[in-house]
Simulated scan of single mutants.
Amino acid sequence: MALTYHILDVFTERPFGGNPLAVVLDADPLSSADMQKVAREFNLSETVFVLTPTSAGHTARIRIFTPSRELAFAGHPTLGTAALLAELRTQPQLNGERDAIIALEEEIGSIRVGVRLRSQAAAYGEFDAPKAENTLERLSEPEEISAAVGLIPTEIGFENHKPTLLRGSNTFAFMPVSNLEAMSKVKVAPLHWSRAFTARGVHGVYLYTRQSVRVQSAFHARMFAPDLGVPEDPATGSAAAGFAYVINEFDELPDGTHKRAIEQGIEMGRPSAITLTMMMARNKLETVRIGGHAVRIAEGTLRF
């Protein structure tokens, strides 16, 4: 059996930046065990398997695997797969431009991604993230959680921002860091990490600061998920979606539409750019939208 796969860099306009993603097409013959083996072989943050949709109203059904487990939802696999399917399955208009809605069946539910394709430009996609079903929890034990990421307690927090936890299909801890210098020192300390995060069921820790490398960025971020087989992630759409609730909690957004540019992956040499859009109504966060570019860089044949 031979299956076609593609490699994309997601949340970047240039090859070899952003977060790499493997997408395996026509993967219906594969078992769950097969998919996990393939994801471990690619050894990227996530690998996507494209399957026949169960509903005619959807473009495809997808399953998402890290090197160690399956995920119900993830941001850069959603955006990258939608960009790829738009390129492969839609016809260009007379001027060569294409706009497509790609409807994906994921374990968490249906996700619709708007994709814009233009000649001589990277594909751009945007989707409404699943709504958080839980409220933010405050994280205490500052000595333990700071030690877990190789920092001291005084380097955690800025302004009124404090460490928080948001539970869901992917549970993230959000840790504000005082400045870029402290961010550059972050390193997972396994023993402290196990007590501070693994024991709480945390999948990933998202660290952020208002200081940024790029002028246009509102936040600089790093994300670590060693329990998922991801030592550090260059760009994390699902964490950025959860981060919207953190921003609203501490920055108290007024009603209206608010956009924030988030940079990530810079310390890894894979700079990424995520556009986070938050829509507030009646003092509530009604919609969280994740946007970014994707570049197809390779394709090949997977043989079994």
Results as ranks from 00 to 15, higher is better:
245 Y>A: 04
226 P>M: 08
207 L>D: 02
188 V>Q: 07
225 A>D: 10
205 V>M: 03
235 A>V: 10
245 Y>W: 14
242 G>A: 00
193 W>L: 06
216 Q>P: 00
208 Y>H: 15
254 P>N: 02
275 T>F: 02
200 R>G: 04
301 T>Q: 13
288 V>F: 04
209 T>E: 10
222 R>A: 10
276 L>S: 11
244 A>G: 10
295 V>E: 08
277 T>C: 07
187 K>T: 13
247 I>T: 04
240 A>H: 03
215 V>S: 11
265 G>F: 08
281 A>Y: 08
183 M>S: 07
198 T>D: 14
193 W>H: 09
213 V>K: 10
256 G>P: 12
286 E>S: 14
252 E>H: 14
200 R>N: 02
188 V>R: 13
274 I>T: 13
210 R>Q: 13
275 T>E: 14
270 R>S: 01
267 E>W: 02
256 G>T: 12
182 A>C: 10
295 V>R: 06
248 N>H: 15
191 L>S: 15
302 L>Y: 06
284 K>E: 15
221 A>W: 02
278 M>K: 09
281 A>H: 11
227 D>I: 09
297 I>Q: 02
231 P>N: 00
284 K>P: 00
239 A>P: 05
197 F>V: 00
188 V>G: 08
246 V>E: 01
262 I>K: 02
265 G>V: 05
269 G>W: 03
252 E>C: 07
187 K>G: 00
235 A>H: 04
290 I>R: 12
254 P>C: 04
206 Y>R: 06
293 H>I: 05
294 A>E: 11
261 A>D: 03
296 R>N: 08
182 A>N: 13
196 A>T: 11
227 D>T: 14
294 A>I: 13
207 L>Q: 04
188 V>F: 09
254 P>D: 05
290 I>E: 12
208 Y>M: 12
217 S>F: 08
279 M>R: 12
266 I>G: 00
239 A>L: 05
256 G>A: 08
221 A>C: 15
279 M>I: 14
243 F>C: 03
191 L>F: 08
183 M>D: 05
201 G>H: 07
212 S>K: 06
228 L>R: 00
198 T>Y: 04
253 L>V: 07
301 T>E: 12
204 G>Q: 09
187 K>H: 09
193 W>D: 07
236 T>R: 06
301 T>M: 07
291 G>P: 11
215 V>A: 14
268 M>T: 00
188 V>K: 12
234 P>C: 09
272 S>W: 11
226 P>W: 00
191 L>E: 15
231 P>D: 03
208 Y>A: 06
223 M>V: 11
222 R>F: 08
219 F>R: 11
292 G>V: 12
258 H>F: 10
255 D>C: 09
211 Q>V: 01
206 Y>D: 05
273 A>R: 15
277 T>W: 00
295 V>N: 03
259 K>W: 01
227 D>G: 08
296 R>S: 14
273 A>W: 09
182 A>E: 09
187 K>S: 13
276 L>Y: 11
186 V>Q: 02
291 G>A: 07
270 R>D: 01
190 P>W: 06
292 G>M: 02
183 M>W: 04
227 D>N: 15
229 G>N: 09
246 V>L: 05
250 F>Y: 15
230 V>L: 00
245 Y>R: 15
193 W>K: 06
219 F>L: 15
250 F>W: 08
288 V>D: 05
192 H>P: 03
260 R>W: 12
205 V>C: 12
